[in-house]
């Protein structure tokens, strides 16, 4: 849970960012680069692509704010940009969006695990999560890893709050099914 101090810090930096302050940009970069990279990486499963797309996300965010466009919540905004950037990437590279679990996607899962340097627990988890459909993966990541509110997740995924609650419930049920017996 974010503290009052952290929220206010972000608000002040956001105001500075909108007026083109590069220190404020650095503040947001440091704060969100790991989360955005992680979010994109789990969806695209390739390190190089994840790095390129992460860079695109930050440039788009900068451009959008300097054009004086308003945002309700910076966190929700940046994740939405990240999500849309991944979708655009798939469309432009004419790859099929991995929306549902398919047996042939097991290869992708293997590549994911082999190419990432992390501990065993995370590896096993990724294996399970990769078996879920994209929407379920997103809500679980945003809710339990990035600690976002239902409101912000709804904003990222362009759905209403009740929908999000239902999706979370279904994602957890699906994960329970996948992990049953482990």
């Amino acid at each position: 849970m974010k503290s009052i101090k952290s929220n206010l810090q972000e608000k002040i930096a956001f105001l500075k960012l909108r007026s083109g302050d590069s220190d404020a940009f650095a503040f947001f970069y440091d704060k969100y680069v790991k989360s955005i990279y992680r979010f994109i990486y789990i969806k695209v499963s390739t390190k190089q692509v994840a790095e390129d797309l992460t860079q695109d996300v930050f440039l788009k965010v900068w451009q959008h704010l300097v054009d004086k466009k308003n945002v309700r919540s910076f966190q929700a905004f940046i994740f939405r940009v990240a999500r849309n950037t991944v979708v655009d990437h798939y469309r432009s590279s004419k790859q099929e969006l991995p929306l549902d679990y398919m047996p042939e996607s097991v290869e992708i899962v293997e590549e994911l695990i082999l190419s990432v340097d992390k501990n065993l627990d995370a590896e096993l988890l990724l294996k399970d999560i990769a078996k879920l459909k994209s929407e379920y993966q997103e809500v679980l990541l945003l809710r339990y890893v990035e600690d976002m509110s239902i409101d912000d997740i709804a904003h990222v995924m362009a759905k209403n709050k009740n929908n999000i609650r239902v999706i979370i419930h279904r994602a957890l049920s699906k994960l329970k099914t996948i992990t049953k017996g482990k």
């Binding site: 680069v33 790991k34 990279y37 992680r38 990486y41 789990i42 390190k47 994840a50 790095e51 992460t54 990432v116 992390k118 501990n119 627990d121 995370a122 988890l125 990724l126 999560i129 679980l140 990541l141 339990y144 890893v145």
Partner: peptide, 11 residues
């Protein structure tokens, strides 16, 4: 344990 996914980090 989902929080362990936070260990996925960029170079």
């Amino acid at each position: 344990r989902l929080r362990d996914l936070a260990s996925i980090q960029p170079d």
